[in-house]
Design a protein around this nucleic acid. Structure first.
Length: 276
DNA sequence: AAAGCCGCCAACCGCTCCTCG
DNA sequence: GCGAGGAGCGGTTGGCGGCTT
């Protein structure tokens, strides 16, 4: 038996190689999928217009939530996750269809540099666009574009980490950006609040207005001088931790040791490098 | 004209986080 | 504090249409 002629095991095939083989040899797909729902009789695949109507009518009448029971209540033979995804990515009101504009593309690039592959957060800053749409757009368009000198690779966690020497100082900082609570962030974003309102009264509101300010600066909605002219005295140490990437959990909010002034000075030094 | 290849995008999957009892 | 279940997220896949050979 000549082992050198043995093809690689299926799990070592690249996707393209797999598809090439499938096309050439008319094989069934090598990499199968397990159904997400073990229940038999759960429908999968593309949604029909009738299913869309059932789901949309139900949610308009009863609101979002309880996805696991939505399918039953609405008379759909779909799993809850599928219903949720269909609603969020397609049926939800105010979904913007069609081509991504140049302005939206610029914003996606900046937000991706800022947030990495946190598509839901990026989508939250771009009205009418879904995380899935932005993710697809990134992977099919922006990922292939030539990157600026200091641009973060599309998948920094897998590709950039192997050669730390190539990371710029800014990228080092960006890779440590906070993983703040998505629900809070999304609700913030859904309000469309792009201003750095100083009327926040609670600690939580205060923290997110700080983050918002920074994001506005990063996405060039405000200038560096406007940013530095801000009265930071009303903001918590979270802001400083966000700036230098020292924030790793909500506990850090209460770190009284944070040297806000020094961190802000560091940020100011880095600011020019961060902005393309 | 047919086969092969490629890109796009809707949908699926597994994992993590959050909430609640 | 702990476990179960639900919700959300990001990575991946499959189907399809268009392009190339």
């Amino acid at each position: 038996m000549n082992m050198t002629q043995t093809p690689p095991p299926p799990h070592m095939y690249s996707r393209k190689q797999c598809r090439r083989d499938r096309d050439r040899l008319s094989l069934i797909p090598i990499m199968g999928r397990r159904p997400c729902c073990s229940k038999e009789g759960v429908k999968r695949g593309p949604w029909t217009a009738q299913e869309d109507k059932l789901l949309a009518d139900y949610i308009r009448a009863h609101g979002e939530g309880k996805w696991s029971s939505v399918s039953k209540q609405a008379g759909l033979k779909r799993c809850g996750k599928s219903c949720r995804l269909r609603w969020l990515n397609y049926l939800r009101p105010n979904i913007k269809r069609g081509n991504i504009t140049q302005d939206e593309e610029d914003l996606i690039i900046r937000l991706h540099k800022l947030l990495g592959n946190r598509w839901s957060l990026i989508a939250g800053r771009i009205p009418g666009r879904t995380d899935n749409e932005i993710k697809n757009y990134w992977n099919s368009n922006l990922c292939k574009k030539p990157l600026p000198n200091n641009f973060v690779p599309c998948r920094p966690s897998k590709e950039a980490s192997s050669d730390p020497q190539q990371l710029s100082k800014a990228e080092d900082k960006l890779s440590n950006l906070p993983k703040y609570n998505n629900q809070n962030a999304e609700s913030e974003c859904s309000e469309g609040s792009l201003s750095s309102s100083s009327s926040a009264t609670t600690r939580e509101e205060e923290d997110y207005s700080s983050l918002d300010l920074w994001m506005n600066f990063y996405t060039r909605e405000i200038s560096l001088s406007q940013f530095l002219d801000t009265d930071f005295s009303n903001m918590s140490n979270l802001f400083a931790e966000v700036i230098v990437g020292g924030y790793s959990s909500t506990k850090a909010i209460h770190d009284e040791e944070a040297d806000f002034g020094a961190q802000l000075a560091l940020f100011t030094d880095l600011a020019d490098e961060w902005i393309m």
